[in-house]
Design a protein around this nucleic acid. Sequence first.
DNA 1: TGTCCACAGGAAATACGGGGGT
DNA 2: ACCCCCGTATTTCCTGTGGACA
Length: 423
Amino acid sequence: MEASIIRGNLRDRIQNKLACSVIRDRRFLDDEQLLRSEQLAVLEEIFNANVRDAEISEISDHFAPILRNDHPYHLALWGKTGTGKTLTVRFFLNLLAEMCSEQAIPMREVHLDLSTPRPCFRALNDLACLLNASKRYKKGISLEELMLRIEESLADYKGYLVLFVDEVDNIRRDKDTFMSFLVRRLPQAVPSKLILVFASNRLTWPDNLDPRVKSFLRLNELIFKPYDAVDLQKILDIRVRKAINPEAVKPGVIEKIAALASRDHGDARQAVTLLARSACLAEKTGQSITLDLVDRAASEIEQDKYVTMIRTAPVQLQLAMAAVIQAARAHRGSALNSNASYDAYQHLAAMAKIRALTRRAFGDLLNELDMYCFLRAHVFSRGRYGRNREISLDLPAETLKAIESAILLNLGLGRSTQRTLSF
DNA sequence: TGTCCACAGGAAATACGGGGGT
DNA sequence: ACCCCCGTATTTCCTGTGGACA
């Protein structure tokens, strides 16, 4: 009898699920899963909704000379992440490529994506790969050699070459070498008509550029404003229509997501992620998307961000983070200083059988953690009792817990080993 | 006012590791 | 197999510093 009740419950649940399934086509909630053609279709729809209108028309003005066989300046786009710089440019270049091929104007576009920071060497290497000029190296080949290969591969191409350098400011170290290659050397070494398009999220980026490069660089600048709630609503609406069962969206949900997103960052990608996460939650619990679920999804996303960030971080950084969390727990209440956390760190390192770094290096780790907002390390002086960093953790306790257990698992100190030890 | 604590953090030195050239 | 080169991580060394205390 028990069994039949359970069976009945299960049946109900499954039927319930099918009846009010929330997500119709999951792929439209995640750009990665869309085919390129589908992506462009979505983009077209978005741009048709008059979002980023002003920017598109400015970009077209900028590139118009190409169709008259003229040579436009370079272009720099400023705007925060997720304001659609990349998408807009890709969408536009696609369009431009079509128009050029109609008019038999040779045009080639290359998208150099530097969304993760990398040194000059890797950036050049990536560029070379995109141009089929070389294979991927980790090290061991000189910058000069890479440059030569890039030039060689373009030696015969006389048409337009639009080089879209996404997130330029992500070049660590030797930025000037990279820039002066692109701006001064490449155009002279190669017959192609080179048009550089830089995208960056820091307005101040060109300030710390080599002045020689800067004076050489003829730039047109264009600023992308963050999406406002209205734009975001349009974008979300399109996604909802494609991906989600409209009945399953409670009124006000889209407005709320748009409002949250525009308040925090104005980032469309994150807004869509939030929508996706809410939809997933709704599907799991078998209800429709409610305002409450949106809140829960938002805090889950926040937590995930930290956990994945720390999981992929170098071991020593993880170790330092876990040590601080543990030390803070031990110190409950009283302020935590760098000395105590270093002790905890040494202890933890011994447990994980990892060589502990020196205090100096540990200090740098703390700074790095501070930079990523995992903790706050404030240096302050206690007079003749010396100076000290005071460390505080102000992430929610739940998040800290998740971070800690992720790290311990990574280091082989997870729950499972603890349990086997206690047996 | 000067002293002096106890660490911060800059700079240079050193270790490391991976890849190419030979 | 060996060496050299290059980029990165870490150590070593060292100077600087805010403010309580005498």
